[in-house]
C-alpha cells in the first residue's frame, strides 16, 4: 500500500513544525512566568546567581534562550529541579511511568467496556438495559472524579475492612505498591483497582455514549441493509459490517482522549498518592520549579501531538476513503 505510506509520512512531516512551535511557546510562557534562579537570588550569592543566569542564557533574548535550552535538551541535559535538585531527565520519566500504567489499564478496560455497552445499547435501543446504561453514564459523567474516588475508598476499602474485621483493606488506596513489593502481582492489582476505577468511570461513560450513537448511525446505513439483503447472518452483519464502520470515529476520539490523559490525571493521582505526571505538575507549579515545568509542558504537548498523529493514521488505516487526500 504505497498510498498508505505516503499518507503516514505526510502526517508525520506535518507534526514536526507543530511540536517545534508548541515547545517554543511553552518555553516562552514558562520562562516569562517563573525565574529558574529564584532560590539562588534569595541566598544573595551574587556569583551563584550569575552562574545560573549564564548557564540558562537568561540575559539573552527569549529565542536565544530557547535555542540554548533546545540544544541542551537534544544533548540529554533537561536541567535541574530547583525543588529537589534532581535531574529533570530522571524525574519526568519516573513520573511518566506511573501515569502510563494508570492510562494503560484504564484505557484497556474502558475501551472494551465502552464498545460492549455502546453496541448493546444501540442494538437494544430503548430497552430497559439501554436506559440503565444511559442513566449510569450520565451519573458517571456528572460525578466529579475526586468525589467518586473518595466514595470508592470509603465503600470498597474502608467499610468492608471494618465489617469483615480484616487487618488489611481489600483494595489499597495509596501508591501502586505497598512497602518493598514490586512487579505486577496481586499487591499491584489490589493497588490498581480503585484508581483505575476512578479513571474509567468517566471515560467509559463518554466513550460508550459515543459508540452507541455511532453504532445507531451505521445500523441504519444502506450498506447494512445490503448485507442483510445478501443473507449475511445477523451476527456477521453487526460485527463485520456495522461495528467495523462504527469503530472508525470512536478510535479517533479514543486516540485524542488518550493523548490528553498524560497530563490530566491530576485529581486521581492526588487522591491515591500516585507520584505520576499530575502530581509532578502540581508540586512543581506550587514550588515555581521552572525547569521541570518547561519539560513537563513540552512532554505533555508532545503526547497530544503524537496521539493526534496516531488518530490520523488509524483513521487512514480503518477508512480507505481518507487515504486519498
Amino acid at each position: 500500500m504505497p498510498s498508505m505510506l505516503t499518507y503516514i509520512s505526510r502526517r508525520l512531516l506535518f507534526s514536526i513544525p507543530v511540536i517545534l512551535v508548541a515547545s517554543f511557546l511553552l518555553f516562552w510562557m514558562v520562562r516569562s512566568t517563573f525565574d529558574p534562579c529564584v532560590k539562588l537570588r534569595a541566598s544573595k550569592d551574587v556569583e551563584a546567581v550569575a552562574r545560573c543566569e549564564t548557564r540558562l542564557h537568561l540575559n539573552d533574548p527569549i529565542p536565544m534562550q530557547y535555542l540554548g535550552w533546545a540544544n541542551d535538551a537534544v544533548h540529554g541535559d533537561l536541567g535541574q529541579s530547583s525543588r529537589t535538585n534532581e535531574e529533570v531527565s530522571a524525574m519526568v520519566p519516573r513520573a511518566l511511568w506511573y501515569t502510563v500504567q494508570l492510562i494503560f489499564w484504564g484505557v484497556l478496560i474502558s475501551a472494551f467496556a465502552a464498545v460492549a455497552l455502546g453496541v448493546y445499547s444501540a442494538l437494544k435501543q430503548y430497552s430497559v438495559l439501554d436506559y440503565t446504561f444511559t442513566g449510569a453514564s450520565f451519573v458517571g459523567l456528572a460525578m466529579p472524579p475526586f468525589w467518586f474516588g473518595l466514595i470508592a475508598i470509603e465503600l470498597l476499602a474502608i467499610m468492608p475492612k471494618q465489617w469483615l474485621g480484616l487487618d488489611e483493606p481489600l483494595f489499597y488506596f495509596v501508591g501502586l505498591h505497598s512497602g518493598a513489593e514490586k512487579g505486577f502481582g496481586a499487591d499491584y492489582a489490589r493497588h490498581l483497582v480503585l484508581p483505575v476505577m476512578t479513571l474509567t468511570v468517566q471515560i467509559i461513560a463518554s466513550w460508550s455514549r459515543f459508540q452507541r450513537s455511532s453504532m445507531l448511525d451505521v445500523m441504519s446505513a444502506d450498506y447494512v441493509r445490503t448485507a442483510r439483503a445478501k443473507g449475511v447472518p445477523r451476527r456477521d452483519v453487526v460485527v463485520h459490517h456495522a461495528l467495523r464502520n462504527a469503530l472508525v470515529p470512536l478510535v479517533t476520539v479514543m486516540a485524542l482522549d488518550i493523548g490528553a490523559l498524560f497530563g490530566g490525571l491530576i485529581i486521581t493521582e492526588t487522591i491515591f498518592s500516585i507520584p505520576g505526571m499530575g502530581q509532578l505538575f502540581v508540586r512543581s507549579l506550587q514550588a515555581g520549579d521552572a525547569e521541570v515545568l518547561v519539560v513537563w509542558t513540552v512532554v505533555t504537548a508532545g503526547f497530544i501531538v503524537v496521539f493526534n498523529l496516531l488518530a490520523d493514521v488509524l483513521y487512514g488505516v480503518m477508512d480507505p476513503r481518507v487515504r486519498v487526500t
Binding site: A227, A229, P320, R321
Partner: peptide, 14 residues
C-alpha cells in the same frame, strides 16, 4: 436478491 438505488451508500465503504 435485491439491487438498491444508491450504490455508493449501499456498498460498505471499508
Amino acid at each position: 436478491a435485491m439491487v438498491f438505488q444508491d450504490a455508493l451508500a449501499s456498498l460498505n465503504p471499508v
